[in-house]
Amino acid sequence: MIDFDRDTALTTKMLDALDMRVRASMHNIANQNTPGFKRYVVRFEELLRERLADGGGVQDVEPVVERDTSGDPGQNTVSIVDETATLDKARLVYDVMTRRAGSVFKLMNSAVFGR
């Protein structure tokens, strides 16, 4: 029995985390002129690294949504440059991960149909 989930588990988790991060970034950009808005941060990669170092698996890691608390209460903490960079980085990694998933599907296709 081929463990299909094992090959796609990391990709699935990563895509979920990236989608969440991109939505958080878009929310931050939409709120760049909202008084007192504190930006959202989605953490995943470093949590995954820690978990893997502890001998855990991808399944045990979930992306964590955090609210920035820096600055005065009325201060908006959105930096449009940082958010744009986050968006573009996420887009590139998203592309890599979807290609990775695609190659698994291609492999399955050639195994089953021989093409």
């Binding site: 895509l15 991109v22 970034s25 878009m26 950009i29 939409a30 760049q32 449009i80 958010e83 744009t84 968006l87 573009d88 996420a90 887009r91 998203y94 592309d95 979807t98 290609r99 998933a101 695609g102 599907f105």
Partner: peptide, 21 residues
């Protein structure tokens, strides 16, 4: 900036459709 974010999101979804075929 909002428009660029929307465009980036669309590109992401579009490329995922192509890449995961």
């Amino acid at each position: 900036a909002n428009l660029a974010a929307m465009r980036t999101y669309r590109t992401m979804l579009q490329s995922s459709l192509v890449n995961m075929r």
